[in-house]
Simulated scan of single mutants.
Amino acid sequence: MAPPRRLTLDVDLATAEEILRRWDIPSTPARIGRLEGGSTEVYRIDLDEADAAPLVLKIYPDEPDWRPGKERLVADWLHRAPEIPAPGCLALDTSRDLLPLRFALMTVLPGTMVRSWMTTTNVDQVYRQAGALLRQMHAIRMPSYGYIKDQGIEKPMASNREHMAYAFEGAFRRFREAGGDEELARQLEALAAANMDLTDSRGPVLCHDDLHQGNVLVERQPDGELCVSGLVDFGNARAADPLFDLAKAIFCSSHEDPRAARPLLEGYGELDHPDAEAALQLYTLHHRVSMWAFLTRLGRDPSALDGPGGLIRDLNEMARCGLDKVQPE
């Protein structure tokens, strides 16, 4: 078996200049530095021209092969909603003749991750803004439900009930494959099946499906206030019920910062569902099962309360008590 390709590359200025030349960008690179965070390697290219905005070079592993095209597709959709600050895709190169991996050249957004502000200031206002921005993203209607790949929606489904039945089936399959307890899986499957009426939806929308402190950018304004300046990393995007996405945002963000749930909900605003709290919990059940399998496959400590152990504790509680109401701190 061939060794995996190295993802951290030494991109020199000459290579960066050739990349810009290939895509007819009339600028000269001055500096290159790796940016923190994200699920793939990302580099910032500063340009010589004083008034030229920096660029982002994002590289991709060989698998999945559809990932670069997906991010360009989602970037094109978001470009139609200019009120949503998201990076634009200027170029996508799959030739591997300039770099040994595929890459995208993207516009840069100002600011730094919410994560870098959490210990220094009150970020409640940032979470409210992130919730409001997520609602704006959910104004982008989609033609059907399903996971998004480079050619559009994979296995498009007409109803959210069908979509969630398929999603739960996949989540529990991965749970079992990762060594999850069979009795717990059966109890949770029964709980999900008994509550599928909660998946009635007003229609599919574009969902980020990975909104957390590492994918929201913030910058400080001249008056000292923090302002969300961008959303990044749309590699998980799907067409789904908006509450599915809101539940994922609360689940991921609250794991890192328990303060996040309430202001995210406040920023998002009124929930158009007859039993929104129970629906959020049903979707949280899916996210917990999926995340346990994901972390377990990564080899995380199965007893860690901030990882698989904590998720199993929460899943056992759901199996015992059912869908409790969401009670953000």
Rank of each mutant, 00 (worst) to 15 (best):
Leu73Glu: 02
Ala53Ile: 08
Phe172Trp: 09
Asp257Gly: 01
Ser27Tyr: 09
Glu83Ser: 15
Gln187Met: 15
Ala239Leu: 03
Thr199Gly: 03
Leu271Lys: 09
Ala158Arg: 11
Asn215Val: 10
Ala194Ile: 15
Phe168Cys: 12
His138Gln: 10
His286Thr: 13
Ala194Gln: 12
Leu9Gly: 09
Ile250Val: 02
Leu285Gln: 06
Asp257Val: 06
Ser159Arg: 00
Pro4Lys: 02
Met118Thr: 11
Asp257His: 11
Ala319Trp: 01
Tyr147Thr: 05
His79Val: 13
Ala86Glu: 09
Val326Gln: 07
Lys70Ala: 09
Gly267Leu: 14
Arg186Met: 13
Gly38Thr: 12
Val42Glu: 04
Ala247Asp: 02
Asn215Phe: 03
Ser290Thr: 15
Met113Pro: 09
Pro263Leu: 13
Asp76Ser: 03
Asp275Phe: 11
Ile140Trp: 01
Ala53Met: 12
Asp181Gln: 07
Ile59Pro: 08
Asp124Cys: 14
Pro274His: 08
Thr8Lys: 06
Pro3Met: 10
Tyr268Arg: 07
Leu134Lys: 06
Leu188Tyr: 01
Ala249Lys: 00
Met106Ala: 04
Tyr127Ile: 12
Thr119Leu: 15
Glu36Pro: 13
Leu282Met: 03
Trp23Asp: 09
Trp292Ser: 04
Phe175Trp: 05
Trp66Val: 13
Asp46Asn: 08
Leu246Tyr: 04
Asp48Cys: 14
Ala132Pro: 10
Gly230Ala: 00
Ala319Val: 10
Pro204Phe: 08
Ala239Asp: 00
Leu55Met: 14
Ala319Asn: 02
Glu277Pro: 10
Asp245Ser: 09
Tyr166Gln: 14
Ala193His: 03
Arg313Val: 06
Ala193Cys: 11
His273Trp: 06
Tyr147Arg: 04
Asp51Lys: 11
Pro87Met: 10
Asp181Asn: 09
Gly309Ile: 07
Leu57Arg: 00
Pro87Thr: 02
Ala75Arg: 00
Leu246Gly: 05
Arg135Pro: 09
Leu271Arg: 02
Leu90Glu: 06
Arg102Asp: 05
Glu83Pro: 07
Ile148Cys: 04
Glu256Asn: 12
Pro222Ser: 04
Ile25Trp: 04
Leu13Asn: 04
Glu154Trp: 06
Ala260Leu: 13
Pro4Ser: 06
Ala192Glu: 00
Cys207Tyr: 08
Leu92Ile: 05
Asp197Phe: 07
Ala50Val: 10
Glu225His: 02
Ala276Arg: 00
Arg128Thr: 14
Asp210Phe: 05
Leu271Cys: 11
Asp93His: 01
